[in-house]
Amino acid sequence: MTITTDKFNTEKAPKPVGLYPHARKVGNLLFLSGVGPRQAGTTKIPGVDLDEHGKIASYDIEAQCRSVFDNVRTILEASGASWMDLVDVTVFLTNMDDDFAIYNKVYAEYFADNQPCRTTVEINKLPTPIAIELKCIAALSE
């Protein structure tokens, strides 16, 4: 059996920081690569202030959450999917103690109508100076 796969990229989402697509469709599943809050076409991260060495001086987790959720929606739509197609979300936070309550509140706003499975883990750091990243899977109708 041969499984066909399609890769998707969009200029409307932040450029991947490595050699990978924004999303890849396999059968009726759409897998999104890790999505962060950076703005498309720039290195700007909403709610993040960097010091002279490029390290995080301060950040607003709510602004990052809203931006990352919007980026996920953009990638889904560019791949022929919708927010309601999401079935699984893995969330990576760099500061669970300080950020979880705010993230959870914003998450509830965005996912009120669609409640995919969710796993949230704390990690030491992400490859760019961000505090949140999402890994998502969507199920598509055939």
Rank of each mutant, 00 (worst) to 15 (best):
T5M: 08
K135H: 15
D99G: 03
I137Q: 11
Y103C: 04
Y103K: 05
M96A: 12
I56R: 04
P16S: 08
Y103E: 04
I132N: 11
L32M: 12
T94H: 06
W83C: 08
S82G: 14
Q39T: 09
T10G: 00
M84A: 15
V48P: 10
D70Q: 15
D99W: 10
A108H: 06
P116F: 11
I45S: 07
T119H: 09
Y103Q: 04
E52I: 09
Q39D: 14
A23R: 00
R73I: 09
D70L: 10
S82H: 12
E122R: 10
G47M: 11
G18D: 11
C65V: 08
C65D: 12
R38T: 13
D49G: 01
R66T: 00
L76Q: 07
V35F: 04
K55A: 15
A108L: 06
A112G: 02
L140H: 12
P116K: 10
F100N: 07
H53I: 01
V91I: 10
A57W: 06
R118I: 12
E52M: 12
G27H: 01
S141Q: 15
A81P: 10
K135G: 04
D70M: 06
K7P: 01
V106K: 05
V35K: 00
E62W: 05
P14G: 07
N28M: 02
P37V: 07
D98T: 13
T4N: 15
P129I: 06
D98W: 10
V35C: 04
F111H: 01
Y20A: 10
E77A: 11
Y107K: 09
D113A: 11
A57R: 15
I130D: 14
D70G: 07
T128L: 15
V121P: 02
K125F: 12
H22E: 05
A138E: 07
Y20M: 07
I56Q: 10
I75A: 00
A78L: 03
D60V: 02
K105V: 01
E142M: 08
D60W: 11
T90N: 12
K7S: 15
G27S: 06
Q39F: 01
Q64Y: 03
V26A: 15
I137C: 08
K15C: 03
D6S: 14
E133N: 13
N124H: 13
D51Y: 09
E142W: 12
F111W: 04
D60G: 01
A131N: 06
V87N: 10
V72F: 11
P14V: 08
K7H: 14
